[in-house]
């Protein structure tokens, strides 16, 4: 298979603050994402996952290192990249109804009339299972539904790379399972290359074609593992599959191993 690299991060470091308040969060992260791939980046809370995602999205500069998207260095949010943020309640616009929130995602698409954007927004809401909620406002929906509106907005931008920052961390377990499958379906249907950042090892393995395992701060890539489970996943059978269990064991071990060493490295 010819590797078609969409995204590449090379030696990303990030230090917040300066002097004795300086906090080095990223310690030199490198990885690449191929077209059509679903890559999970997994690491403990506070290790710098959001920092990394914002750097990839061009939303926040790094201290050193480079990000390239389709071969071009990223210095500002590039066209073709969409983000679904962790905190859906602060990401949607409460003064717009759900249709207009989704239509807002088309701000960069040229040559669409307002009516076409509305139709397209409705289509995206249908795709995430919220057909009947276009005229409602985000604050009239449950958390999981709000995050689906945010996903629809991300898809509406017709990007090729979808960056997901712990999108399901705040929804209940049943909703989370449903939305994992929804995201996998949408990724295929809309031909999205996806990077999912999460602290949830099970979710990282369940969703991904490849898992990038991070270390503690200053964070680097510990190792990567390819998940040989094919694109078709199932909440019950996939999670019982020996290959799933082996991958889960591998990731869990490396993350727990780091925790065991924590006191020594913190000293």
């Amino acid at each position: 298979m010819a590797m078609d690299v969409v995204l590449s991060a090379q030696g990303l470091t990030k230090t917040y603050g300066a002097g004795k308040d300086a906090l080095q969060v990223l310690g030199g992260i490198s990885f690449a994402v191929n077209r059509g791939e679903f890559v999970s980046v997994v690491g403990p809370s506070g290790c710098g996952k959001t920092t990394l995602l914002f750097a990839i999205a061009g939303l926040q500069g790094v201290t050193s290192g480079t990000v390239t998207f389709n071969g071009r260095p990223v210095t500002a949010p590039p066209k073709g990249v969409a983000v679904v943020f962790q905190d859906y309640s602060r990401s949607l616009f409460p003064w717009k109804n759900n249709r207009d929130n989704v239509a807002f995602g088309m701000a960069r698409i040229q040559g669409l009339s307002a009516a076409q954007k509305r139709d397209k927004a409705q289509e995206m809401l249908d795709a995430v299972g919220l057909a009947g909620f276009a005229d409602k406002y985000p604050w009239q929906l449950s958390g999981g539904m709000q995050q689906r509106v945010a996903i629809a907005r991300g898809l509406a931008s017709q990007s090729e790379l979808l960056l997901l920052d712990e999108p399901l961390a705040a929804v209940d377990a049943q909703t989370r399972a449903d939305m994992q499958d929804l995201l996998l379906d949408l990724a295929i249907r809309f031909k999205q290359t996806c990077v999912l950042v999460t602290h949830d090892v099970e979710e990282a393995v369940y969703m991904a074609d490849r898992v990038v395992v991070l270390t503690r701060r200053p964070t680097v890539v510990d190792h990567e593992i390819v998940i040989e489970l094919g694109k078709k996943r199932d909440q019950i059978t996939t999670r019982e599959d020996p290959r799933f269990l082996a991958a889960r064991h591998d990731v869990m071990t490396s993350i727990r191993g780091q925790r065991a060493h924590a006191p020594a490295s913190a000293a």
Partner: peptide, 28 residues
């Protein structure tokens, strides 16, 4: 909300557009 502002930045909105379309309605 910084996340609302970043949502605008992701869509390539200018500072002025972010002010008009996001910050002012949010502040109203």
């Amino acid at each position: 909300s910084d996340i609302q502002i970043r949502s605008g930045q992701m869509l390539g909105l200018s500072r002025w557009q972010i002010l008009r379309q996001i910050k002012l309605p949010a502040a109203m």
